[in-house]
Amino acid sequence: MAEADWDEVKYIGRRQPKSGTLKTPQALSAAQRQGVAIDTEKKFAGGQNKQHSAAKNTAKLDRETEELHHEHVPLDLAKLIQQARQAKGWTQKELATKICEKPQVVNEYEAGKAIPNQQIISKLERNLGVKLRGKDKGQPLEGRKEK
C-alpha cells in the first residue's frame, strides 16, 4: 500500500446531515462546526399559499377581457332563420333535428346570441332553402331539390 492511503481518515456509519434536516438552530450550528456547506436563501412567500401577485394579474386580466369580445349572429340573420323556419311550419326542435344539432343551438341563432359557425349556417341554408350569407340574403337557394 502507498503511504498516502494511511493519511486518509474514513468514518464508517457517520453521514453528513441532509439539508432538509437543518431547520433548527441547533442543527445549523452543528453543521457549521462540522464544516458542512450551508445554503441560506430567503424564499418568496415561503410557507404561505401564495402563488402569484394578485394585484398585477387582476389588472392585466381586466384589460384583456375589456378588449376581447365574441362576435354574435347579426339580428337580420336571426330574423331570416326564424321567418324561413316558420314558413316551413317547423318548430325549433324539428329544425334542430334536421340539421343534427341541439334545439338550444337553433334557439341561440334565432335570438342572435350564438357565435357564428359557418358549418351550422350552411346546414341551416340547405334545410331551409334560403340564402343566409352574401349579398342576396333571404333569396331562395338555387339548385335545391324539394323532397
Rank of each mutant, 00 (worst) to 15 (best):
M1G: 13
M1R: 11
A2L: 09
W6F: 13
V9K: 10
Y11D: 04
I12Q: 05
R14G: 03
P17R: 05
K18L: 08
G20T: 12
G20H: 10
T21A: 02
T21W: 06
L22W: 04
T24Y: 03
Q26R: 14
S29M: 09
A31L: 05
R33H: 11
R33E: 09
R33V: 14
G35F: 06
A37V: 12
I38W: 07
D39N: 15
T40G: 07
E41D: 08
E41L: 11
A45C: 08
G46F: 14
G47K: 14
Q48F: 09
K50Q: 13
A54C: 09
K56P: 06
K56Y: 09
T58K: 04
A59S: 12
A59M: 13
A59I: 15
K60Q: 06
K60Y: 06
K60R: 15
L61V: 10
E64A: 12
T65W: 03
E67D: 14
E67Q: 15
L68A: 13
L68G: 11
E71Q: 12
E71T: 15
P74C: 01
L77V: 10
K79D: 09
Q83I: 07
Q83E: 08
Q83R: 12
A84E: 02
Q86I: 06
K88F: 01
G89C: 06
K93L: 02
L95N: 00
I99N: 00
E101G: 03
V105Y: 04
V105S: 02
E108L: 09
E110Y: 10
A111I: 05
A111M: 06
A111T: 04
N117M: 01
I121H: 00
I121Q: 00
S122Q: 11
L124M: 11
R126G: 01
N127P: 03
G129D: 05
G129H: 08
V130Y: 00
L132E: 02
K135W: 05
K135L: 08
K137R: 13
P140N: 03
E142Q: 15
E142P: 15
K145W: 05
